[in-house]
Design a protein around this nucleic acid. Structure first.
Lengths: 376, 376
DNA sequence: ATTAGCACTCGTTCTTTTTGAGTGCTAACA
DNA sequence: TGTTAGCACTCAAAAAGAACGAGTGCTAAT
């Protein structure tokens, strides 16, 4: 059977109506709701066809129709598109940044900012939001330094490309003069700086340990940490917000389902997996839509997930995702994500290296500066 | 009216039965359940008295009785105590530590460890758990260092007592020779190390800025960060786990209530407030119980909260809390928290300063070392 | 003081009835 | 040939009613 113009319109009307009400939608409703003026009887005939095509089903005889996953897929891939040009109701969500910070107090850490982004998206859309911290793909070591903290403790500071900082405190049991520390620093910096994971090969390592002499175990421990710091797929944090929004959708808020979904949100590992999925293949403009069974997470078979990939200046890529009922407002969600991406890109311009900062009097914040102690 | 021996027993029986079943408990049940062999009629008379005393109520005529908040209060304060000596079913929960780390992979950060503690407690009790990171009361600055990262960026590393590390990257717009950095470091360390918040007074500050000469704005920015790092009541993280456990208790799992509670768990600020409450006045062994309306959080009027204060070696104090229905198993929960405290204390012994670490070959972990970049 | 007995209450559960939204089909119409 | 009015039919959900039974309070006997 053919999905002609009229059938499309009817299907779209059904989807949109169902999106709003959450109730199965009947022929009479469409007859009035849509602009094509047809009697309910005609609509019924068309609906019958649509059902045969597997695009809608009725929960029981004498109920209205509900779109199937297939219909949503079709909606997202085709039907929706046509409207999207017109629809220009400026999605005015404000990403917290340094300049217009009326929404946010201080955003001096990436972590806070991602949390805020999640919150804003969740508030704006009324769905649940999740954001994965960017993961680094191939990072250069930029700076390394050892310093003595007290008699038995050595502090190591690593800075990698993107100004991500990593600290580690070592206990030392051996004698170590300040002079030794100095030369170790020199040794490490001159040999390691600017190198990527791959470039630190056995040659470099043996050279280092040889040079280190008696302190070679310190060098080894340093190398271990370096490896951790620049390892490509080092684990990813996930920030979430608005998980309880699912209670706004009856089809998700029976205890069984809700509990499972919320569990997943608490146990962020699975979310991380779902989000990193989107990183691999960039669909249309980096936005991907998973409908029902397509979702990579078991507990969300009754949901849809929309993800988008963001990229910060240093090539740090992360994903932001929205979880809602299958009847979610796809156009709105996708629009939201799109403008969000644009804004993020505007804030973090893709200047290859050494982007010059405009010197603004006070507290000009380092955008990528996640490393701090765990407080505040 | 007098709460005699028998009434106590009956009340206790009611509470315990209700704790298990969640259903109003009737006279017949008690007549059989409790060891005092009395007919249901007698129990009924006593119950009538208990109701008059405000210790139990019936949801409606012809229903069993349910304990009031007052009854729980009495139970926690008195009734329960008697049994607690006998009850020695060793609460075997294993705090993740370095030695017995079968439960945990790597605990090289406080953050991870607190998360794990929350998880374990939640799993063990079947209630929701929350843990606040320790807050520092009066901290000394231990170490400070500036280093150049690249032409326009200066990295500052602070270490404060307890080996908490804080990083900050400054943009610099002025000329700064390596020699200048060295002397700045010298200047800062010799003047600030070992000082607490209070001791860094105007005298010290003016002396510093004077000495700094042209670089006095750098010093100012450093001081600003120092202030943040050692500020006494710097904000507190809260780790939670098992929030969805509330679905196990029907009285909490209608959508309205559940949604509110879960919201509170997502919005951790309120939890932080509730937890910090316990820090102030140490009740019996640091364990406090809030029943129903006593809870400091509005959305948890239908819950009870049990909190305990833990203290790590460096005088870092935090709170761990358990949220459950008012009919929670108080003895079990309190027991759990008690043994947990003991274990934490065992792992972090209260040696005043410079606790000697047993040198174990590899990766001897710094217990208090929260500061790292946001990954892993 | 305790208890057996009994009438009474009232939420829960099960069954029945009613309602109405929605369908499919047919026959008439343009 | 496509559209529509009309009508019988279905079935979930809502409303109404009946039966149940857990639990109570009271009284009278022990």
């Amino acid at each position: 059977m053919e999905l002609d113009e009229r059938k499309s319109k009817i299907l779209k009307a059904i989807i949109q109506n169902y999106q709003e009400t959450g109730e199965p939608v009947g022929s009479r409703t469409i007859s009035k709701y849509s602009d094509l003026s047809l009697s309910s009887a005609t609509i019924r005939n068309e609906m019958s066809d649509l059902e045969e095509m597997g695009l809608i089903v009725q929960p029981h005889t004498s109920a209205g129709r509900v779109p199937t996953d297939l219909a949503y897929r079709m909606y997202v891939d085709q039907l929706m598109k046509e409207d999207r040009e017109k629809e220009n109701e400026k999605a005015e969500l404000s990403v917290p940044d340094q300049k217009s910070d009326f929404l946010i107090k201080r955003m001096d850490r990436m972590e806070l900012m991602l949390e805020q982004v999640a919150r804003i998206v969740a508030d704006k859309t009324n769905y649940a939001a999740m954001v994965s911290s960017p993961r680094i793909n191939q990072t250069k070591l930029k700076f390394i330094q050892l310093s003595r903290v007290d008699e038995y403790k050595l502090l190591m500071v690593l800075v990698v490309e993107g100004n991500i900082i990593r600290n580690k405190i070592f206990d030392i049991h051996e004698d170590l003069r300040d002079q030794d520390i100095l030369s170790l620093n020199l040794l490490l910096n001159s040999n390691l700086n600017g190198l990527t994971m791959d470039e630190i090969n056995l040659g470099v390592i043996t050279h280092l340990t040889e040079q280190a002499g008696v302190h070679k175990d310190i060098v080894n421990r340093v190398l271990e940490e370096v490896a951790k710091a620049i390892r490509p797929d080092h684990s990813v944090e996930v920030y979430t917000s608005g998980a309880t929004n699912i209670f706004k959708y009856p089809e998700l808020s029976d205890n069984e389902t809700a509990s499972e979904i919320l569990d997943t949100f608490e146990e962020k590992k699975q979310l991380a997996k779902a989000l990193s999925d989107g990183l691999k293949a960039d669909g249309h403009q980096g936005i991907r839509v998973y409908i029902g069974d397509e979702t990579p997470v078991d507990s969300m078979k009754d949901c849809s997930i929309v993800t988008a990939t963001y990229e910060l200046s240093d090539g740090l890529k992360g994903t932001i995702g929205i979880v809602g009922p299958k009847r979610m407002d796809y156009p709105k969600v996708m629009k939201t994500l799109e403008t969000l991406m644009q804004q993020l890109n505007a804030i973090f311009p893709k200047v290859p290296e050494l982007e010059k900062k405009e010197p603004d009097a006070e507290g000009d914040v380092n955008i990528v500066e996640p490393a701090e102690d765990e407080k505040e």
